[in-house]
Design a protein around this nucleic acid. Structure first.
Length: 150
DNA sequence: GCCAACGTTGGC
DNA sequence: GCCAACGTTGGC
């Protein structure tokens, strides 16, 4: 089992939206590294930190769980979608998505707080220049974060 | 295969 | 709104 952190702009899709929906299709990822994580490594039941990005106070906002293995992202085939990709075909899909299930909301743990813990020095999203919307979280990092959230 | 130009991300 | 950092594109 692997642990993950998934970013979402709350103005697009927030932890409250996920709570309301119960689960969601994580479509629209158009970065190869993030796609590969979903397609090659994510398994049903993997725990997920739900992170709010590009907002007033970015940070961890809740917990979720992978609820479906990766399969082709429908939006790549839809000419009306912002995520349409003319290079993709049904025979050779280019983009994949998993599904994610709501677990619970947490207190907001801001990125400024995350940066203060030496235990989280290796957390991927804190690395300089990091832009990946999906990153693995080490078991030790996961345990430490959960302890701070309770 | 190189690399400059461009677009995007995302914290501040 | 700024800008550093990064990924992608496309000409050569």
């Amino acid at each position: 089992m692997r642990y993950w952190l998934m970013k979402s702009e709350p103005s697009e899709y927030s932890i409250d939206d996920l709570q309301r929906d119960g689960h969601t299709v994580w479509s629209g990822v158009r970065n190869y590294q993030a796609r590969n994580f979903m397609r090659d490594q994510m398994r049903v039941g993997d725990p997920v930190l739900f992170y709010h990005s590009s907002c007033a106070t970015p940070g961890i906002a809740g917990l979720a769980e992978v609820s479906a293995l990766a399969y082709p992202d429908e939006s790549q085939f839809d000419p009306d979608s912002d995520y349409f990709d003319p290079r993709a075909t049904r025979a050779a899909p280019r983009w994949f998505n998993v599904e994610v299930q709501f677990k619970r909301k947490t207190r907001l743990m801001p990125i400024a707080e995350l940066r203060q813990y030496p235990e989280l020095a290796t957390l991927r999203i804190l690395a300089k220049g990091n832009r990946l919307s999906i990153t693995p979280v080490d078991p030790e990092e996961w345990k430490f974060i959960l302890r701070q959230l309770d």
